[in-house]
Design a protein around this nucleic acid. Structure first.
Lengths: 220, 220
DNA sequence: CCTACCGATCGGTAGG
DNA sequence: CCTACCGATCGGTAGG
């Protein structure tokens, strides 16, 4: 999409605000003040709050594609690409590409029980992401990397762990959440990996000392 | 907590609204209009928006305890109780106890990157829930129901699947999401179940016939 | 892009 | 519990 530099600057800031506070709090007055321009000047780029929200979702998709999808496309098809998608997602969260973590987790939770164009656009973006996961899983099975399995079930489980990693990472401000997500996905994929297929980088759980395990038991 | 009937009615409505639209949209004017009272009359019960939010979180915890924790306490300790917690959670979502699904998923996502007393109260409630999951997992291992495992890791994975089930159920308006969550948890627990321990009700995937199911259990 | 507005709604208060 | 109000902020508009 062709877009002026000013409009792009507005939308990138809007996406950053939405990732922490939600699309509802992306108000025209707040954006204008943050960016040092007038409300009416900013408003003129969009014509309605809903258009601003829809264009914010669109730029969120663009940033997600650049930081998660595109890097993983470099990996070989099948299991390596599936694992690359997972590690790229976790890296995107850890790097703070959006200050509130995964943009789509925040806005999807905000709009999951609402109706209208903004809900539909968010749901469509997530459906496309899930179809991509499922497609890469199908490839991995057809290439003999993984034992036969239900792609929708496996994609659901992987997405659940990724999203939970993002969520707990921010709620508890604890980077170990991303490690829990990585370990859960690695274990699930390891169980499905066929004998001839090599394991991948960062696959195994880092060694945990006996003391740390005992503490984990005590903490309950 | 002692509480007048009027205040309880306000808070139960506030929790219902928060589960769909978030705590931010639980405004004093909206509650007053919904309940047919004046803003000032409603406001007087709380004294500040933050107090209203904190008391809404408290009543959300009470309702969660009644619908998820208490029923599962009836099940025997160990694996049966762990499975009862999971099925009680999914039933609580499916039953629409809150119109927006799990109250805590909505508000935790809303507040995960904020600071202050409301964030802290939500984070504390979720920590207590996670500690409960971990404690029941430790019991299941000590009772010999499950092979030894990292309780924090398993609790994280179970919670991830439960929350994803709730989330996708509402985002796509598709009840199969809860079945994906149930199946994912069941498979994970089945892999950890020790030979002498019986499987539990609703354990297997429905698509599989009873015969295939029985064979599958024998094979292990 | 701007200044200057509009009616509606926000959290909160005064006074009863 | 109520009416009546406050200043701030919301999305949006008029006019340039």
């Amino acid at each position: 999409m062709t877009m002026g530099a000013s409009k792009r600057r507005i939308l990138e800031h809007a996406a950053a605000v939405a990732s922490t506070d939600g699309l509802e709090r992306v108000t025209i007055g707040r954006l204008a003040e943050d960016l040092g321009m007038s409300k009416a000047g900013l408003y003129g780029h969009f014509g309605s709050k809903e258009r601003l929200q829809l264009e914010t979702v669109a730029i969120g998709r663009e940033i997600f594609r650049r930081h998660v999808i595109a890097p993983a496309e470099q990996a070989p098809a099948g299991l390596p690409r599936l694992w690359a998608l997972c590690t790229a997602y976790l890296a995107y969260v850890a790097a703070g590409v959006f200050p509130g973590g995964d943009f789509f987790v925040t806005v999807a939770n905000e709009y999951d029980t609402r109706t209208g164009p903004v809900h539909d656009e968010i749901a469509a973006a997530i459906t496309i992401w899930m179809r991509r996961l499922e497609g890469v899983i199908v490839d991995a099975v057809e290439l003999g990397h993984l034992s036969p399995c239900d792609p929708a079930q496996l994609a659901f489980e992987i997405e659940a762990l990724l999203v939970a990693g993002n969520h707990v990472y921010h709620l508890d401000n604890d980077p170990r959440a991303l490690e829990l997500a990585r370990a859960g996905i690695a274990r699930r994929l390891e169980d499905l990996r066929t004998p001839g297929t090599p394991a991948l980088a960062g696959w195994s759980t880092p060694e945990r000392g006996r003391q740390e395990q005992a503490e984990s038991l005590e903490r309950r």
